[in-house]
Design a protein around this nucleic acid. Sequence first.
DNA 1: CCCATGATGCCCT
DNA 2: GGGCATCATGGGT
Length: 203
Amino acid sequence: MKLNDNFYLENTETVARKLLGKILVHNINGNILKGKIVETEAYMGVTDKGAHSYGGRRTKRVEIMYGPPGRAYIYFIYGMYYCLNAVTQKEGIPEAVLIRALEPLEGHDIMALNRFNKEYKNLTSTQITNLTNGPGKLCMAMGIDKKLNGSMLSGDTLYIEEGNNDKFDIIKTKRIGIDYAEEAKDFLLRFYIKGSPFISKKG
DNA sequence: CCCATGATGCCCT
DNA sequence: GGGCATCATGGGT
């Protein structure tokens, strides 16, 4: 069952928590890649110095965040990587949840090729744990790039569906990579599934 | 384990 | 021209 667009209308922090345990799917011409979301971060828009839309900044890059909820906001960073976000809140409110790590569930062979140009069975143990444990890594593994920016996460290509209702505890901590964001760098807006071996960083 | 560093290109001022 | 919601690597502890 795909999540419908209303799922992304709740408070962005709530959406970030509720996305844990859900399944991200990319259908590439019938080849299915799936990963369980194990780590997220909430970006709270105009009042959040860590957010691209801080202060109401509205440029071509961030325009998608001002649109309706349930779309993919994908941006290019550090000259090499993509990051995937789910846009939250009604049209006009530029907030989003960054998907930071996945547990690979299906399509391991394609993910291994995308990440390391090797078959899954030939990966080292380090490569197996590093397949999707970061925002740039998961985009590379899942074949997610700029082409999917703005697409509906309730659509047929890149979408998010219900998980298995498995129980877990949630760790709430500081976000990563926003040291420039003054007081906002200490906001507790990063969430991950306690004990998951697939998170990007402990703490 | 931790920390430092280089890669590499788009976006915005 | 500066900076960036990152990653891989290499060395020290």
